[in-house]
């Protein structure tokens, strides 16, 4: 049971209120029909599978309902930071524990 900081509610809340929603910063192509088969395949299926800090999406499904982004260390399972959907992909925080 992790604790997750919802950037919309601005509260750190129990994981039970949240749902994982896959890797972050994989934008749907503006014109999918203009993509090659390979580009579309990569968009659909190819993921980072990071060991360590991972940019991923969560949804505060039993709360404010918003999707947001997070950096989570897949080794320690710790959230390094969370930020609102649509915000630029941040650099990795210097130190674990920042929220």
């Amino acid at each position: 049971m992790l604790l997750i900081h919802c950037p919309y509610c601005d509260e750190t809340l129990p994981e039970a209120e949240f749902a994982y929603a896959g890797e972050a910063h994989i934008a749907r192509p503006a014109d999918p029909m203009a993509t090659s088969d390979e580009e579309w395949r990569d968009f659909l299926f190819i993921r980072t599978n990071a060991k360590g800090p991972h940019y991923e999406r969560w949804r505060h499904v039993h709360g404010c309902g918003r999707f947001f982004n997070a950096i989570r260390d897949t080794v320690s399972d710790r959230f390094l930071m969370t930020y609102k959907a649509g915000e630029a992909r941040p650099a990795l925080p210097a130190k674990e524990g920042a929220e």
Binding site: A19, A21, A27, R28, R57, R59, V61, G65, R66, F67, A85, G86
Partner: peptide, 13 residues
């Protein structure tokens, strides 16, 4: 509903 919200919030805000 989750899928719709996902597109609405993150692809077509």
């Amino acid at each position: 509903l989750t899928m719709m919200e996902d597109y609405l919030q993150t692809e077509w805000p």
